[in-house]
């Protein structure tokens, strides 16, 4: 038994982190957040070339031939970078919708909760999208439509990969809070020396690590109950960490200029999109 990510798995994640740091760093994120919400098609294609969408397609079908454990590591990186777009839907469409695997097609999907992200930018919309009404989305980087009735079924892999993005966002929030706490001074010392601030940061790490262990476990077993539990904890980690990160930033945290609100808003979207808290908890309870 070795539950740690293998050397190869860590290399894969590192590669994605580097790609995103170069192609979707802070400036790109801010430009995207301040401009009209449009997908960067060139970046989408690069993600396709890097294997993000074709990751789990068999090699014989032109894919990378890897599994859910690798996928959650990559989606965690996407969550950390706050990469916009229907990444999960396109990943799951690889091999089913032409161009999805390569990153030449953008595929979105109606969620079981009746939400449809990125409808206007997508080449292909899966699911019952008739009657979709645009929403003024709380997240500047996720355009949303409401759909009268979502599909009945739940795709567990979509739930898991969304949870993985939440873990990445929770980890980013921890890092950002710790970095700010180590630099901002009040009362003649860095605020990270105050126990009240330290303990917030420690709590953020604990939530992240618990959720990450849950997501990794669910990626290995692929059991629906374990995935539901992982989503529950990952949603909570992403939302609560963004709020604590905001708190550590003081007034700065309440500004548009600080990135933390973008993480909080996306965390809310991901939490509401698929298997929101109460449903996840019920699903886990059912199995007891």
């Amino acid at each position: 038994m070795d539950f740690r990510p293998s050397e190869d798995q860590r290399d894969l994640a590192r590669g994605m982190r580097e790609l995103l740091a170069g192609r979707f760093g802070r400036e790109a994120l801010r430009a995207a957040a301040d401009g009209p919400a449009r997908l960067d098609r060139a970046l989408w294609k690069e993600l396709g070339e890097a294997g993000l969408f074709a990751l789990r397609l068999p090699e014989a079908a032109g894919g990378v031939g890897l599994g859910l454990p690798e996928a959650v590591l990559l989606f965690e990186e996407a969550g950390r970078a706050l990469l916009p777009g229907p990444l999960v839907a396109t990943h799951l469409a690889a091999g089913r919708v032409p161009g999805a695997a390569e990153g030449t097609a953008v595929v979105t999907e109606v969620s079981p909760e009746g939400l449809l992200p990125w409808a206007d930018d997508a080449d292909v919309v899966l699911g019952p999208a008739a009657g979709a009404v645009p929403v003024r989305s709380v997240d500047p980087l996720t355009p949303l439509h409401r759909v009268p009735g979502g599909p009945a079924g739940l795709r567990w892999e979509a739930v898991l990969l969304t949870a993985a993005e939440q873990v990445g966002s929770a980890a980013w929030c921890t890092d950002a809070a710790v970095a700010y706490a180590g630099q901002r001074e009040q009362f003649g010392q860095v605020i990270g020396g105050f126990q009240a601030v330290k303990h917030l940061c420690a709590g953020m790490l604990v939530r992240t690590e618990l959720a990450r262990a849950a997501v990794h476990g669910a990626a290995v077993t692929a059991e629906p109950v374990e995935i539901a539990g992982a989503k529950l904890l990952a949603d909570e980690a992403a939302v609560a960490n963004a709020r604590d990160c905001l708190q550590v930033h003081g007034g700065m945290g309440f500004t548009w200029e600080a990135d933390v609100h973008l993480h909080l808003k996306r965390a809310w979207v991901r939490a509401a999109l698929l298997l929101p808290g109460a449903r996840a908890a019920e699903r886990v309870a059912d199995a007891l």
Binding site: R4, A214, E226, A228, L232, E282
Partner: peptide, 30 residues
Amino acid sequence: PALRRRLGRLSAEFLALWRLTQRNVSEAGA
């Protein structure tokens, strides 16, 4: 439903704690 969800949540937490244990043990083993 509130009690059910409370138990569901706890169940998710204890499964996650079990995974965390497996990870800590893996790290200790290495």
